[in-house]
Nucleic acid binder design. Structure first.
Lengths: 348, 348
DNA sequence: ATAAGAATTCAAAGCGCTTTGAATAATACT
DNA sequence: AGTATTATTCAAAGCGCTTTGAATTCTTAT
């Protein structure tokens, strides 16, 4: 069943039928109802490919996922994509996903854009000074970055394109301050890879708080790596296996997954939170790794990456309808949630 | 730059240019080279939408992800999708992903198929007696199921459609047997949700081994739930907090993530593997949760879900080219990897 | 009743490609 | 040379939709 069949069936022109279905004002209410009913009865829905060809719109958003080092294809990604996906299904968009290694990443964007296969993009995991931003701007398609590419001082850059980000700098400043207020001076930071903007900002937030408190940061306490459980475990084991006076009294991790490893290490060292050591983490509220009074209960800075996905989906949806709204920028402040993993510095 | 421009530029017809670009035999080698060069020079590539409309092929595979209970959008999913995605990028396919709750799931398949937006499907997480299989067959598009819908006795059903699965039944039989051989009789199974076929088969494998050993299974030792860390933790805490004689001496979990929770519980109960209790797990080799001599080192049945993704991508690719190859069925046998988490039954 | 204006409807062009069937050029065969 | 083949090339018809600009019908005002 296609448009021609349907209009023949109704004794109307394709024009009128098409307009009736697309809510154009110049079709009378009576015929619109007739058309709508016929469409329903005959289980008709417009062929998106043909529509795409005619309009130039595809009804799909491109998600180019950098592969290579498992950087983005990780649990955070699944929760985020669940969020955007649920918005998309509400507003009738599809995801066109292209997994590509960093070499072909730019190509993928261009191919998807040039072929008009997508109407816009969501940029995942912005890096510090991300060249993709420039490229995306040149592609002339709306896009929303999940995260920003620049720190707080480049505020002119921030309003240049649409993004949704959490205040990583503020959050890690606050987390660090929280630990400092408990009396901790030797705080370790287990961060993500710092060429990623979020991780870069988290370190900056950490440093800012330390600086404000006039405490010199210890380079060996600031570690940066891919965010796996094992990284957390290994790093923590190393930190904790030195003699007490030289080890951190608090560990701040950039993700719940790292924190898992740290917890394991703490137990393996026969230590306990918060009496022996304090642990604090950033918590994306990953679906499969809850963190609340019933389980881990790690003190954290919390912001739902799933909700971020939902909102990013809405944002790109808005941009498709009203491109003039660009840029839409939102900075979310994670909230501090006190758990049982932090306390004052253990007295020697 | 479109086909018309290019052919005008070359002084050839669109037909010839199109054929030259698509490797048709009836164009002379000389003109083909000329066309290819011009295409390169002018940065031309065919508009997939137009091609799709003309051919009915879209160059994309549909992945409909059931949402709702976070069932599929989980870490296993990201690793799998990384696998298919990497194959797709090699053979020039895109992913069209639709996240939908279980009500609208069937609709999504139909919409994607009817609109010719995809050339085929990958079915995720088959259930026991999955109605989607029947529907997909009716849609007349090639599809590959990651997993099967029926157990080993319905062998007639198995060859009815293409699938790639691990031998869940065999793997859990083998795992259970391994534990039995170590002398364990009180073995607990922390399974996934058993309306999912993989989980159903895992229980069956467990039961088969127990039966063969003439050991009655204890219903309170067979738990089934969504596979989260917390589930593992809670279930294990409950199992371990009864008096020694009434608790299992070994725990077998259906996923690495559950096992994480179990490990945490074991430590919280001040127990140790393998001296106090044995732990064994199924291991999908999730990228962010390695399990080897350097870290957890849990004895496991192992098969890479990422590799499965790669192969499923290849399979659907083959089916697109040669539909007559359907069905392609592959059953992978996970391999047993001994870690440090299992040992003989502790003597009271 | 009639012209002007508004409200509907329509025919046809176009989106950029593939593919059919016909036309032309090149080569082979009496 | 003349015809039969074969190898290339081409014009034009779709694919199923949207949208422009013209045509028709219905209202309203004179």
């Amino acid at each position: 069943m296609n448009l021609k069949n349907l209009s023949d069936l109704l004794g109307l022109s394709q024009t009128t039928v098409s307009r009736a279905l697309n809510d154009y004002p110049e079709v009378s209410e009576k015929t619109r109802q007739k058309v709508l009913k016929a469409a329903r009865d005959n289980n008709y829905s417009a062929n998106p490919t043909a529509r795409n060809l005619a309009t130039g719109r595809s009804g799909a958003i491109g998600h180019v996922i950098p592969f290579g080092t498992h950087k983005m294809i990780n649990p955070h990604f699944s929760d985020f994509i669940a969020g955007v996906g649920s918005t998309y299904s509400k507003i009738g968009l599809d995801i066109v996903m292209s997994i590509s290694d960093s070499n072909s990443e730019m190509e993928s964007y261009k191919r998807l854009a040039q072929s008009r296969r997508v109407d816009g993009f969501v940029l995942h995991g912005p890096l510090v000074n991300d060249e993709r931003i420039k490229m995306l701007r040149e592609l002339q398609l709306p896009f929303v970055a999940h995260g920003r590419c620049f720190g707080i001082e480049n505020s002119d850059q921030e309003t240049d394109y649409s993004w949704l980000d959490v205040d990583n700098l503020g959050a890690f400043d606050q987390a660090t301050t929280y630990l400092l207020d408990l009396g901790h001076k030797n705080i370790a930071l287990l961060n993500g890879l710092e060429h990623m903007n979020f991780a870069y900002l988290r370190r900056r937030g950490f440093e800012r708080a330390m600086e404000r408190a006039n405490i010199k940061t210890n380079p060996t306490f600031m570690i940066s790596s891919d965010m796996t459980e094992f990284y957390g475990y290994k790093a923590a084991i190393e930190l904790l296996s030195t003699k007490r006076s030289r080890r951190p009294s608090a560990i701040l991790t950039a993700s719940r997954i790292i924190a898992e490893g740290v917890q394991r290490a703490i137990k393996d060292c026969s230590l306990k939170t918060p009496s022996d050591i304090s642990l604090m983490t950033y918590d994306d509220e990953l679906g499969f790794l809850p963190n609340n009074e019933y389980n881990s209960d790690i003190t954290c800075m919390r912001s739902s990456i799933y909700q971020a996905g939902i909102r990013v989906g809405q944002m790109i949806g808005e941009l498709l309808i009203s491109p003039e709204k660009n840029p839409i920028c939102e900075l979310w402040m994670p909230k501090l949630v006190e758990g049982k993993s932090t306390g004052s510095v253990p007295k020697n």
